[in-house]
């Protein structure tokens, strides 16, 4: 990390807003799919719930505890994939996870909309797993994985 990266690149205004008041936070009754994600090192734990209409995500929510980065990532994720087809959501999730994992690759922010604000985390290797956890949990829910996923 060089000195030109400031804290504000990581904790952008929209990231802080989402972490303070996460969207779609809480348990979703009658969820068709759900999965739990756990990051043992941080103690971050979250559950992602999906309600489906055929192959489309009718509704999505999450609940749990986590740092500002994982809460904001989860909150933005629910907004990003709500209403989309499961296959689209899964491919976007894989795309995002791939983007986080490759600090050298250009952060493809243009088509990510609000999610682009999470790009600053790539300068913080120890925090990437915080941003990735909700997306991995979403993938686990979509593939109906029963076991808890972990970013460790």
């Amino acid at each position: 990390m060089d000195d030109k990266h400031t804290l504000m690149d990581l904790y952008r205004r929209s990231v802080l807003q989402h972490s303070r008041t996460p969207h779609n936070f809480g348990r979703l009754d009658a969820a068709d799919l759900k999965a739990e994600g756990h990051n043992p090192l941080c103690g971050d734990k979250l559950t992602v719930y999906l309600r489906l209409d055929g192959n489309d995500i009718l509704d999505i929510s999450f609940e749990g505890v986590g740092c500002a980065i994982s809460l904001a990532s989860a909150s933005m994720m629910t907004e990003a994939v709500k209403g989309k087809a499961l296959s689209t959501a899964q491919s976007e999730a894989n795309d995002i996870i791939g983007n986080f994992a490759r600090p050298d690759a250009r952060w493809n922010g243009d088509r990510l909309g609000e999610l682009a604000a999470l790009g600053g985390v790539r300068e913080y290797p120890s925090r990437i797993k915080c941003a990735v956890l909700p997306w991995k949990t979403l993938c686990a829910a979509i593939s109906k994985t029963e076991q808890t996923v972990s970013t460790e």
């Binding site: 904790y11 500002a68 980065i69």
Partner: peptide
């Protein structure tokens, strides 16, 4: 309710 890891990152800065 600030997560310890957020504190750790801000302090590291």
């Amino acid at each position: 309710d600030i997560h310890p890891h957020d504190l750790g990152t801000v302090l590291d800065h």
